[in-house]
Simulated scan of single mutants.
Amino acid sequence: MKGLLATGFAAIGTGSGAMLTLHAGSDLDPLHSVISEYAWQSAGWLLPASLTLFAAGSALIAEALRRSGANRWVVALLLVWGASMFLVGAFPTDRPGVPLSLSGGIHRHAAFAAFLVMPAAGLLLARANVRFARAVRALSGVALGALLLVVIPYVVRMFGIPLANEDIPAGLTQRVVVITELGVLALAGLSMLKPSARRPGVSPIMA
Score class of each variant (00 low, 15 high):
Lys2Asp: 09
Leu4Cys: 11
Leu5Met: 04
Leu5Gln: 03
Gly8Met: 05
Ala10Met: 12
Gly15Val: 03
Ala18Phe: 15
Met19Phe: 15
Leu20Asn: 09
His23Cys: 03
His23Asn: 08
Ser26Gly: 09
Asp27Met: 09
Asp27Gly: 12
Ser33Pro: 09
Ser36Asp: 08
Tyr38Ile: 07
Ala39Phe: 09
Trp40Tyr: 15
Ser42Arg: 14
Ser42Pro: 13
Ser42Ile: 10
Ala43His: 12
Leu46Asn: 02
Ala49Pro: 04
Ala49Thr: 15
Leu51Gly: 04
Leu53Met: 09
Phe54Tyr: 14
Leu60Glu: 03
Ala64Arg: 04
Arg66Ser: 14
Arg67Lys: 14
Ala70Glu: 02
Val75Glu: 05
Val80His: 06
Val80Ile: 15
Ala83Trp: 11
Ser84Leu: 00
Ser84Ile: 01
Phe86Lys: 05
Leu87Pro: 07
Gly89Asp: 10
Phe91Cys: 05
Phe91Pro: 01
Thr93Trp: 00
Pro96Trp: 02
Gly97His: 07
His109Gly: 02
Ala110Asp: 05
Ala111Thr: 03
Ala111Asn: 04
Ala113Gln: 08
Ala114Pro: 05
Phe115Ile: 02
Met118Lys: 04
Ala120Tyr: 01
Ala120Arg: 01
Ala120Glu: 05
Gly122Tyr: 00
Ala126Trp: 05
Arg127Trp: 11
Asn129Cys: 07
Ala133Glu: 13
Arg134Lys: 10
Ala135Trp: 15
Ala138Ser: 06
Ala138Asn: 06
Ser140Tyr: 06
Gly141Gln: 04
Val142Ile: 13
Ala146Pro: 13
Leu147Ala: 11
Val151Cys: 10
Val151Trp: 06
Tyr154Leu: 14
Tyr154Ala: 14
Tyr154Gln: 13
Val156Met: 11
Arg157Lys: 09
Pro162Leu: 00
Asn165Met: 11
Glu166Ser: 15
Asp167Trp: 12
Asp167Glu: 14
Ile168Glu: 13
Pro169Phe: 10
Pro169Asn: 12
Ala170His: 11
Leu172Ala: 15
Thr173Asn: 10
Thr173Lys: 05
Gln174His: 12
Val176Ser: 00
Val176Phe: 03
Val177Glu: 13
Val178Glu: 09
Glu181Phe: 04
Leu185Glu: 02
Leu185Arg: 00
Ala186Leu: 09
Ala186His: 01
Ala188Met: 02
Ala188Cys: 05
Ser191Phe: 07
Leu193Ile: 04
Ile205Ala: 12
